[in-house]
Amino acid sequence: MQRIKNVLNVHFVDRKGTFLVPIYILAAMVAIVIAIGIIARVAGANEADLYEGMKWNGAVWALLGMGFGIGAMTMTQYLSFALGLGITRREWLAGSSVMFVLIAAGTAVTVMVLKLIEQATTGFGLSVRLFDTVHTGPASWWQTLLQVFLMV
């Protein structure tokens, strides 16, 4: 168990790359979708049609790309270093799996909360959707939590 904790410590060395980059990606997604909503409002789009049509918005799939990016970063930057410190590949896999589960859980909770806010404000007041889409589960909060966790 101590060796798995050591692997987690290796992952926590670059906190910015592991924790802040996903927040930046999420903020960029929100900014782009809100810009689309503002442009559509200025252009005179029907709000009901816009809100209904954006349920197919696939911007939330950027989170999947983020997951791949973190995985690639982990393998290229940290694996050889950890092997040099005497951590076995099995311990690396176990520790990295714990780290990825933590990242997926944090992302799922964040998306679920933002989806609830989006639903309460009818698309952030602009009739747009980013989190309340068919990709994040069209039903209750726990389905969103599970679906986004599995997606990431």
Rank of each mutant, 00 (worst) to 15 (best):
A45S: 12
E47F: 03
L8Q: 08
F131Q: 02
A48K: 10
T122W: 05
H11G: 03
G65K: 04
M73S: 12
V7W: 00
Q119S: 11
K55Y: 07
A62D: 01
D49I: 12
P138W: 12
I34A: 14
V21W: 03
Q119K: 13
M112L: 10
R89G: 13
I32Y: 13
T88N: 07
A27F: 07
L150Q: 04
A40I: 00
T110S: 10
A59H: 10
M29F: 01
N6Q: 13
T133W: 00
L83K: 15
L64E: 09
M112V: 07
S96E: 14
F19H: 10
G37T: 02
H135T: 07
K115R: 15
R15G: 12
R89Q: 13
A27M: 11
V7Y: 01
G69F: 15
I25W: 01
T122F: 08
V10K: 10
V101E: 07
M112P: 00
T88M: 04
P138C: 07
L93C: 09
M99E: 14
F81R: 10
F149L: 09
M99S: 13
T110M: 07
T107C: 14
V128M: 06
V33E: 10
P138I: 12
V13I: 15
P138E: 15
Y78N: 13
R3Y: 04
T122K: 06
L63K: 03
L8A: 08
F19W: 15
G123K: 00
V10Q: 09
G86N: 08
